[in-house]
Design a protein around this nucleic acid. Structure first.
Lengths: 239, 239
DNA sequence: TGTACATCAGTGAACGCGCGTTCACTGATGTAC
DNA sequence: TGTACATCAGTGAACGCGCGTTCACTGATGTAC
């Protein structure tokens, strides 16, 4: 009555897991070497479920409106197999939040490694950030949307990640000797404002219509001026 | 097989439309006077659908995850009746956005009427705003969540409303003679930042666990300091 | 190394359910005369 | 004012569909000896 299109092993090999942000093993090894362990195969399926959810987000869907069956289908797996990896959709969502946290922390790590743009620091940083968001559109779309619109569990998890991100940013600024007169609490508050401004901007960046350079420049200019305003305030902050 | 619990006219009278934010006719009239026009009855059903959606949001659901049938059920109306009022859920969502816009504009109107708190302006305004959000929790929950997490149509509509709100705020600040040296564009940019900070805070306010005064005070203090920082930046802004 | 058994990731079928949408209808309200 | 007809908000039944979850199962991988 309902003939399966792929055999199990064909299913397992379908679609090479695009947007594999936090993959540990390089793809070449996975493709070249022969038999793989049960643990490894399981991990790959798990990753395919995560990638499947992201792929659907990439097609304009919001995570909140995805169904378990849709995600399983996208991952090339039977719906029941989902339960071998996640209790429910919230648990998969938490994995995406974790991935978002890693993505944010990597942004800071790269900034530490490459240094802040020497001239027009804020504008330079904004442009780097914009590119970073565009290259990781799916994760940022997820984070930006579920930060306020997801389930209570996801909202809280994302809030926690944002907090860590802000703390780490505060630490970096302190280490750089920027604004040495500010208390840690003030620095933390300021970074909190910077982070919400950045995530709001991420949402704007991802909603920019393609091929509208004027609108794009206005958005960037506005984002830059908002950050300038915040840092100008920080310069005069006494506490 | 499936006996209806209410007759049509009983249905129409059920549940007195709580949270009727923008109702035009006072309830007393509706209940005391006898026959009502077809137009009026239709308008009431429409309002019951809107209120039904809000009631479901009030029970912790996100608008994006509501179904047409659920809303119709909540409004005490058969699913097919929905189509007499809205083409689809997005169109009802736009009505909720409109209601949110009215709610925001009324906040400014009340501020204009009552004046800004004379001492500790920012802190006073924050406390007024906090109470305003809590009293209109459902609309703010909707706006805060769908602003980033809704359909593209809703996101854009909410962005437009936010923009109007920011413009109106800029106009009010100008009229008050606050920061007279700033260009209109700068004032608009600053108000944009204030608005996103306010809406972010709305989300935090609504997620505060009840009976945790310490956490609540910390949230308020942080919100106050972020706004102070912004206005401190604005004071030194030259453009 | 070879064999016999255990594990368990993924299968496929089934379930009851709520979904969005359509349709011809009903009966109260509105209107033309 | 009274009557005959038109309008149309809301009904109730039906449709096909995708949903989340359960279950016994299969067969490849892992392990003990």
């Amino acid at each position: 009555m309902h003939q399966p299109i792929l055999t199990a092993s064909q299913r397992a090999r379908r679609q090479p897991a695009e947007s594999r942000l936090a993959a540990s093993a390089p793809l070449s090894r996975a493709e070249s070497e022969g038999p793989i362990s049960r643990t490894e195969r399981k991990e790959r399926t798990r990753q395919r479920l995560i990638d499947g959810a992201l792929a659907l987000i990439g097609r304009g869907r919001s995570y909140t409106s995805l169904s378990l069956r849709e995600i399983a289908r996208e991952a090339g797996v039977v719906p029941a197999a989902f339960y071998r990896h996640f209790r429910d959709l919230d648990e998969l969502g938490l994995a995406l939040v974790e991935m978002g946290g890693v993505t944010l922390r990597r942004l800071l790590r790269e900034a530490r490694r490459d240094g802040i743009p020497p001239t027009d620091m804020i504008r330079g940083s904004v442009l780097i950030y914009k590119r970073y968001v565009e290259e990781r559109a799916l994760v940022f779309r997820f984070i930006a949307a579920e930060r306020a619109g997801g389930s209570r569990i996801l909202r809280n998890a994302i809030r926690t990640e944002d907090g860590h991100f802000a703390s780490e940013m505060a630490q970096d600024l302190r280490a750089l000797g920027v604004m040495p007169d500010l208390s840690s609490a003030s620095l933390q508050m300021i970074c909190g404002l910077v982070v919400t401004t950045m995530l709001n901007a991420a949402s704007d960046i991802l909603d920019l219509p393609r091929g509208q350079p004027v609108q794009e420049q206005e958005m960037v200019a506005n984002f830059v001026r908002q950050l300038r305003l915040i840092f100008l305030g920080a310069k005069h902050w006494r506490e």
